[in-house]
């Protein structure tokens, strides 16, 4: 069976790096491992050794490691093409509202990512699929995206325009029934509203496909192991905590919280020896204060949520190759069994 490991967390904390590092470690422990990355920095792509494409590619130098990128930009087009007739799909994609309406909707990126991940889990070609998540809402979006997508294409807007039943097009614009339509006409011009409604009627044809696929994806994601990556800074901490409070029904409780860029606890009360250069002494003291902040954050989160805390040391340089990625996990403290 293919196991899935979903790595969530706020943007900018090193989530993509940790995902890659976990995948390298798993591959080196003998598991056939696929890592799906989102928006890797140039150096990380280099570290992963290939020009990452949409399709999983075996790593040229690392036995048992495959890499693919979760492509966000083409995601909507793919969703539409996959779930409706070719003719309607092309009409939708060519529609003047398509880009504006879809770029509004961050859940679509997460949906496409989750759908792609589910496809690879179903393929049964790997022992482990490590999934880096798009940063929206600290990764929670990744789990709630299927329901949100179904809701959108299911025509929240259309139901409002037409009532609970979905009638034919000619009933759409019965202005006598809907004062708000008259209002909208005044503000926007009637033509715009009709064009938007037509767009959403087309979009609704994808509903059955999206909803069914969404339920399959949710089942996969519920079974996946999740971990949260954070730093001790307040903003990512808030996102990490949110994951415990607003844990979606479709996700399992995180198995660990990774504190990235951790400083040694030995710096906290370290006294610079007598005679230390003043600038160097100041430097140790300020980083000691930082180390103390980090320790409090780790303790607080670990005690409050009874979750395994993994401390990943702050590296002097970002990882540039597979060995330095593996080193990141080897040097980590408190790692529970994740696969």
């Amino acid at each position: 069976m293919t196991r899935a490991l979903v790595v969530t967390g706020a943007g900018g904390v090193g989530k993509t790096t940790i995902s890659a590092a976990l995948a390298v470690t798993a591959a080196r422990s003998g598991l056939r491992t696929l890592v799906l990355t989102v928006d890797p920095a140039q150096r990380l792509s280099t570290a992963l050794g290939i020009a990452i494409g949409n399709e999983p590619e075996p790593h040229p130098e690392e036995e048992g490691l495959w890499v693919a990128m979760l492509d966000a930009t083409a995601s909507w087009q793919e969703v539409v093409r996959r779930h409706t007739d070719p003719e309607v799909a092309e009409r939708l994609i060519g529609n003047e509202f398509f880009e504006a309406a879809t770029s509004h909707f961050p859940a679509s990126q997460s949906f496409a990512a989750a759908e792609q991940a589910a496809t690879y889990i179903d393929a049964r070609a790997w022992d482990l699929v490590v999934i880096d998540t798009p940063p929206a809402a600290g990764g929670i979006d990744f789990f709630t995206a299927p329901a949100k997508m179904a809701d959108l294409v299911g025509g929240r807007l259309l139901r409002w325009l037409t009532g609970a039943r979905l009638p034919g097009r000619r009933f759409l614009f019965d202005r006598t029934a809907k004062p708000v339509l008259r209002l909208a006409d005044q503000v926007l011009g009637s033509n715009l509203l009709e064009r938007i409604a037509e767009f959403f009627m087309d979009l609704r044809t994808t509903y059955d496909g999206v909803a069914k696929r969404g339920r399959q994806i949710e089942r996969h994601m519920k079974r996946a192991t999740t971990v949260v990556v954070t730093t001790s800074d307040p903003a990512p901490m808030r996102e990490a905590v949110r994951f415990f409070h607003a844990l979606p029904e479709v996700a399992s409780r995180p198995a660990a919280v990774f504190f990235n860029r951790s400083l040694p606890e030995s710096w906290i009360d370290a006294k610079p020896p007598r005679g230390t250069d003043a600038a160097l002494a100041t430097n140790l003291i300020r980083w000691g204060v930082e180390a103390q902040k980090q320790r409090s954050a780790r303790r607080e989160l670990g005690e409050r949520y009874r979750v395994a805390i993994v401390t990943v040391p702050w590296q002097r340089r970002p990882p540039t190759d597979l060995d330095s990625l593996a080193e990141l996990i080897e040097s980590a403290d408190g790692l529970p069994r994740l696969w």
Partner: peptide
């Protein structure tokens, strides 16, 4: 800026200086 040379010995002073200088 660190405003000092990173010392060549071991210990927290040197470690913190080396990390700071790299970052």
């Amino acid at each position: 800026p660190l405003d000092a040379e990173v010392p060549g010995r071991d210990g927290p002073v040197a470690e913190a200086a080396a990390l700071h200088q790299s970052l």
